[in-house]
Amino acid sequence: DNLVIALHSYEPSHDGDLGFEKGEQLRILEQSGEWWKAQSLTTGQEGFIPFNFVAKA
């Protein structure tokens, strides 16, 4: 599955970004460039995340 774990917390800075906490698990929905579309397994919310803040779970 496309699961990743957050290496750092991220505060959203643009509409459509997904904020998350360090250690949170996310499911990657789309990989494109440096911003990936993801869904939080904690909150169920979707949005874009910086790819370098996460690692394969």
Score class of each variant (00 low, 15 high):
residue 25 Q to W: 15
residue 39 Q to N: 02
residue 6 A to Q: 01
residue 5 I to D: 01
residue 41 L to I: 12
residue 6 A to Y: 02
residue 43 T to Q: 02
residue 13 S to G: 09
residue 18 L to M: 08
residue 21 E to M: 13
residue 14 H to A: 12
residue 55 A to V: 14
residue 23 G to P: 00
residue 41 L to N: 03
residue 45 Q to E: 11
residue 30 E to R: 07
residue 38 A to D: 01
residue 14 H to S: 11
residue 14 H to M: 10
residue 7 L to Y: 04
residue 27 R to P: 00
residue 57 A to N: 09
residue 36 W to F: 08
residue 15 D to R: 10
residue 7 L to P: 04
residue 23 G to H: 05
residue 3 L to R: 06
residue 23 G to I: 02
residue 28 I to H: 00
residue 8 H to Y: 14
residue 13 S to L: 15
residue 15 D to A: 13
residue 37 K to T: 07
residue 32 S to I: 13
residue 49 I to P: 05
residue 10 Y to T: 02
residue 19 G to D: 02
residue 37 K to W: 15
residue 7 L to C: 14
residue 9 S to L: 04
residue 33 G to D: 05
residue 15 D to S: 11
residue 10 Y to I: 03
residue 43 T to V: 01
residue 40 S to I: 05
residue 6 A to W: 02
residue 23 G to K: 01
residue 54 V to C: 10
residue 8 H to I: 11
residue 46 E to P: 02
residue 48 F to G: 03
residue 54 V to G: 03
residue 47 G to S: 01
residue 35 W to F: 11
residue 35 W to R: 14
residue 27 R to Q: 06
residue 15 D to I: 12
residue 51 F to Y: 14
residue 30 E to H: 08
residue 56 K to P: 14
residue 12 P to V: 06
residue 24 E to V: 04
residue 21 E to K: 14
residue 44 G to H: 07
residue 27 R to I: 13
residue 5 I to G: 01
residue 28 I to Y: 00
residue 27 R to Y: 09
residue 22 K to F: 06
residue 45 Q to K: 14
residue 25 Q to T: 15
residue 16 G to Y: 10
residue 53 F to E: 07
residue 53 F to S: 11
residue 5 I to Y: 10
residue 14 H to Q: 12
residue 13 S to I: 15
residue 4 V to I: 05
residue 9 S to M: 06
residue 9 S to V: 04
residue 36 W to I: 10
residue 40 S to A: 05
residue 2 N to R: 09
residue 47 G to T: 01
residue 13 S to W: 12
residue 33 G to M: 03
residue 5 I to T: 08
residue 1 D to T: 09
residue 15 D to F: 11
residue 11 E to Q: 15
residue 54 V to Q: 04
residue 54 V to Y: 04
residue 46 E to Y: 11
residue 34 E to N: 13
residue 29 L to T: 06
residue 4 V to L: 06
residue 44 G to P: 01
residue 43 T to W: 01
residue 48 F to N: 09
residue 32 S to Y: 13
residue 4 V to P: 00
residue 53 F to P: 07
residue 22 K to I: 09
residue 1 D to Q: 10
residue 25 Q to G: 07
residue 37 K to Q: 06
residue 39 Q to L: 10
residue 23 G to L: 02
residue 25 Q to A: 10
residue 19 G to K: 12
residue 51 F to K: 15
residue 32 S to V: 14
residue 13 S to A: 13
residue 3 L to V: 12
residue 47 G to H: 02
residue 4 V to N: 00
residue 16 G to I: 05
residue 15 D to P: 15
residue 53 F to V: 06
residue 4 V to C: 06
residue 33 G to Y: 03
residue 21 E to T: 13
residue 25 Q to L: 15
residue 55 A to F: 08
residue 46 E to M: 14
residue 7 L to K: 05
residue 20 F to N: 00
residue 56 K to N: 11
residue 16 G to H: 15
residue 43 T to A: 01
residue 23 G to Q: 01
residue 41 L to E: 04
residue 28 I to S: 00
residue 34 E to D: 13
residue 2 N to K: 09
residue 13 S to P: 06
residue 9 S to C: 09
residue 2 N to L: 14
residue 23 G to D: 06
residue 3 L to T: 07
residue 6 A to H: 02
residue 21 E to C: 14
residue 56 K to R: 10
residue 26 L to I: 05
residue 45 Q to D: 09
residue 16 G to N: 09
residue 10 Y to E: 00
residue 44 G to E: 04
residue 13 S to N: 11
residue 39 Q to A: 08
residue 10 Y to V: 05
residue 3 L to S: 03
residue 20 F to I: 06
residue 24 E to C: 05
residue 30 E to C: 14
residue 41 L to Y: 04
residue 50 P to F: 07
residue 52 N to D: 14
residue 32 S to W: 12
residue 36 W to A: 10
residue 30 E to W: 10
residue 14 H to P: 02
residue 18 L to A: 02
residue 29 L to Y: 05
residue 52 N to G: 09
residue 53 F to Q: 06
residue 16 G to K: 08
residue 37 K to M: 12
residue 41 L to S: 03
residue 30 E to K: 07
residue 33 G to Q: 04
residue 47 G to C: 07
residue 12 P to Q: 06
residue 21 E to I: 13
residue 5 I to V: 11
residue 25 Q to R: 13
residue 19 G to A: 11
residue 55 A to H: 08
residue 21 E to Y: 11
residue 44 G to Q: 07
residue 6 A to R: 01
residue 25 Q to V: 15
residue 48 F to M: 12
residue 19 G to C: 07
residue 51 F to R: 15
residue 56 K to W: 14
residue 12 P to N: 04
residue 11 E to N: 13
residue 27 R to H: 06
residue 54 V to T: 03
residue 30 E to F: 10
residue 11 E to I: 14
residue 31 Q to D: 10
residue 28 I to P: 01
residue 38 A to N: 00
residue 56 K to S: 12
residue 54 V to A: 04
residue 33 G to P: 03
residue 5 I to K: 04
residue 49 I to N: 02
residue 49 I to K: 00
residue 40 S to H: 07
residue 10 Y to K: 06
residue 36 W to N: 01
residue 28 I to L: 09
residue 11 E to R: 13
residue 18 L to S: 02
residue 55 A to R: 08
residue 49 I to E: 02
residue 42 T to N: 10
residue 54 V to D: 03
residue 29 L to E: 00
residue 36 W to S: 02
residue 49 I to C: 07
residue 28 I to D: 01
residue 18 L to Q: 01
residue 26 L to F: 07
residue 46 E to C: 14
residue 37 K to A: 05
residue 38 A to M: 04
residue 4 V to G: 05
residue 35 W to C: 13
residue 47 G to L: 03
residue 17 D to F: 15
residue 2 N to W: 13
residue 51 F to Q: 13
residue 1 D to W: 12
residue 29 L to R: 03
residue 35 W to G: 06
residue 16 G to A: 07
residue 28 I to R: 01
residue 12 P to M: 04
residue 52 N to Q: 12
residue 50 P to I: 08
residue 53 F to G: 05
residue 3 L to Y: 11
residue 52 N to L: 08
residue 19 G to Q: 08
residue 12 P to C: 05
residue 18 L to D: 01
residue 19 G to W: 06
residue 49 I to R: 00
residue 52 N to K: 07
residue 9 S to D: 10
residue 26 L to T: 00
residue 11 E to V: 14
residue 11 E to F: 14
residue 29 L to G: 01
residue 20 F to V: 05
residue 18 L to C: 05
residue 40 S to K: 09
residue 56 K to C: 12
residue 40 S to R: 09
residue 13 S to V: 15
residue 47 G to M: 03
residue 22 K to A: 11
residue 3 L to M: 10
residue 48 F to H: 07
residue 55 A to S: 10
residue 33 G to C: 07
residue 42 T to E: 10
residue 33 G to E: 04
residue 23 G to Y: 05
residue 43 T to P: 00
residue 13 S to F: 12
residue 28 I to C: 04
residue 15 D to T: 11
residue 16 G to V: 06
residue 24 E to R: 00
residue 22 K to L: 07
residue 22 K to D: 03
residue 40 S to C: 06
residue 16 G to C: 14
residue 22 K to W: 04
residue 44 G to R: 05
residue 29 L to P: 00
residue 38 A to K: 00
residue 47 G to E: 00
residue 17 D to L: 13
residue 57 A to R: 07
residue 6 A to C: 05
residue 19 G to P: 09
residue 52 N to E: 13
residue 50 P to R: 07
residue 55 A to N: 06
residue 34 E to T: 12
residue 52 N to A: 09
residue 55 A to T: 14
residue 33 G to K: 04
residue 8 H to S: 09
residue 7 L to V: 09
residue 56 K to F: 14
residue 50 P to Y: 11
residue 16 G to E: 07
residue 7 L to R: 05
residue 51 F to W: 13
residue 19 G to S: 08
residue 51 F to C: 15
residue 50 P to G: 02
residue 57 A to W: 13
residue 7 L to W: 06
residue 7 L to M: 08
residue 35 W to Q: 07
residue 42 T to L: 14
residue 39 Q to V: 13
residue 49 I to V: 08
residue 35 W to A: 04
residue 39 Q to K: 11
residue 36 W to E: 01
residue 12 P to S: 14
residue 1 D to A: 10
residue 21 E to F: 11
residue 23 G to S: 02
residue 46 E to I: 15
residue 4 V to W: 15
residue 43 T to R: 03
residue 4 V to R: 05
residue 24 E to Q: 07
residue 6 A to V: 06
residue 23 G to R: 02
residue 31 Q to N: 11
residue 19 G to L: 05
residue 9 S to I: 03
residue 54 V to W: 03
residue 10 Y to L: 05
residue 9 S to P: 07
residue 7 L to A: 04
residue 7 L to S: 04
residue 54 V to I: 07
residue 5 I to F: 09
residue 19 G to R: 13
residue 26 L to P: 01
residue 12 P to Y: 04
residue 33 G to S: 05
residue 16 G to R: 08
residue 47 G to W: 04
residue 6 A to F: 03
residue 56 K to E: 10
residue 43 T to I: 01
residue 47 G to K: 01
residue 11 E to H: 14
residue 37 K to I: 11
residue 42 T to S: 13
residue 55 A to G: 09
residue 41 L to H: 02
residue 50 P to N: 08
residue 10 Y to G: 00
residue 30 E to S: 11
residue 8 H to E: 11
residue 36 W to M: 07
residue 25 Q to M: 15
residue 5 I to M: 06
residue 20 F to L: 04
residue 31 Q to K: 13
residue 48 F to A: 05
residue 29 L to N: 02
residue 54 V to P: 02
residue 56 K to M: 12
residue 6 A to S: 03
residue 48 F to S: 06
residue 52 N to Y: 13
